[in-house]
Write a protein that binds this DNA or RNA. Structure first.
Lengths: 286, 286
DNA sequence: TCTGATATGGAATAAATATACCATCCTATT
DNA sequence: AATAGGATGGTATATTTATTCCATATCAGA
């Protein structure tokens, strides 16, 4: 047995999600329960947890060993540490960080600014995103034969991330980069059974606008991720997301956009998985 | 013995405070400890608590009985409930949102998972990043004549984001894409007055490893952003950042990495601004 | 200083909890 | 359909944990 047991809760969570696909039915059931109920995992005994999760106590031991722990008790420690830290007052946590860093202008100070601003942006994203829009976007993507992705300048990292994810989902996808001056030629190969994902933030790229217009002309559905509902691109969208990324000293972040991109692609994965009868939270690895 | 055992944590706390004066020396010692360490009281076993509090395990049982409980375990329950609720209260905001939308498997449910996980990852980033490493990275970047950026696959969005930011800071920067098969030719143009920023996450790209090796050979300082301190690339780094991005069911996010990238480039901007006498929080727009 | 009463430490015991084991049941492959 | 390999449930066992008990220490009052 390798000594690869995750030492802290975050690692354990990562390990659970990474290995989720390869786990057996019962072990998966436990992973799901542990994922949703860290507090119960931290506090209760094997028999209580087993009953709540609808499994045998021995399955919990098997689960712990599958993740490299010597037994259940050892696996329980990360959960306890996590719950304990969650329970610690905000003040305490703030102090931990505040101790080690300096002025607001220092690199560490900036990191804190960004970390906090991005956390807020992520929370806003969650609160302001319409569930129906997400559903519509996912079904558009699922039904599409080919996905085109367009994003320039600051939107390019988001576009390339979506491109990466879709390719790992075995979705046929193409990134419209404009490389070699073939942008519109590429764009014109879109058809009504395809879909275009366009990401555009201020200052809006003319190229992106042109590609979206071309898509509309050819009856290609367009999923738009942008930062304002008023710009020309947003008005042409089939589905559109109004994302407000954090901004610190004129530097705009991409955390919220990236998070949305991640949620969209993962939802597509589960949706397709379910459609294929693979069910549940199954998601392709890597 | 009256059945006056406090049922919830608040009542127990009130009882402890009220009876504090009348308790014996050892029991007082326990009350003090329990007052200060509800988390330990909730999670640990009698022997651990006893050791930490500097008393005998049996004294804990006596303490519990003094407050009307049938034994230690019964007294422990209010502590556990309290810690659990404290831990849950942080998540309460998400539950509010959860009311209005569907199952954990739904697109909205996934967005919530990711938003939450990414917020945690950002907090983690803030707590784990060494201020000195940030400072060193910033000064390397500031002193460099030319910045090369390398990131493949999942790291590519991060690399392109850094590339975008550096260009907007009027830093001479080049993205090593490997396009046209000229990767090593490009890499070999690096010199000791330049700097290489390499981003690499599991599964690690061979190309990135080769570029880093080439940089070391040519005495080029290397700033590495990776997800493990154990891989070959990290070991060759001049400065390295160990970033743990959120991962939900096999889908790794980039929020933390992007945030670090943002902090690095912004810190560079303010640093150069200050150096040029532009002072303070000034940062270039766009 | 003596005496009775209470508090305390530590070992012994009881209870519970975690873990190992094995027979049986799936599931995939031929 | 047969079979092998792994997964699962239930129980037996080992280990840990909570609790009791009692000898000794401490303390207050005479």
């Amino acid at each position: 047995m390798n000594n690869t047991a995750p030492k802290d809760y975050e690692s354990l969570r990562a390990a659970m999600s990474e290995r989720y696909d390869t786990l057996s039915k019962r072990l998966r059931q436990i992973a799901k329960f542990a994922w949703d109920n860290p507090t119960i995992m931290a506090m209760e005994t094997t028999s209580v947890i087993a009953e709540r999760a609808g499994v045998q106590p021995s399955a919990l031991i098997r689960f712990a060993k599958a993740f490299g722990y010597s037994g259940f008790s050892e696996m329980q420690r990360p959960f306890q540490a996590h719950v304990a830290s969650r329970s610690a007052s905000y003040k305490e946590r703030f102090r931990e960080v505040a101790d080690t860093d300096g002025a607001p202008d220092s690199p560490m100070g900036l990191l804190r600014e960004f970390s906090e601003a991005n956390q807020q942006a992520l929370q806003h994203l969650l609160e302001e995103t319409e569930s129906t829009e997400l559903d519509r976007a996912v079904s558009l993507l699922r039904d599409a034969e080919f996905a085109y992705i367009m994003g320039q300048r600051r939107s390019f990292p988001v576009a390339s991330y979506i491109y990466y994810n879709l390719n790992h989902l075995e979705c046929r996808a193409q990134l419209l980069t404009g490389m070699g001056g073939m942008l519109m030629e590429h764009a014109n190969s879109m058809g009504p059974r395809d879909v275009l994902i366009a990401i555009s933030f201020s200052p809006y790229s003319d190229d992106t606008a042109r590609v979206v217009a071309a898509a509309r002309k050819k009856k290609v559905p367009v999923v738009v991720i942008t930062d304002s509902s008023l710009n020309a691109i947003a008005r042409q969208a089939t589905v559109f997301f109004d994302v407000h990324d954090a901004e610190v000293f004129s530097f705009r972040s991409l955390s919220a956009s990236m998070c949305l991109a991640q949620a969209l692609t993962t939802a597509l994965a589960t949706s397709r998985g379910a459609g294929k009868g693979r069910g549940g939270k199954t998601a392709r690895s890597k």
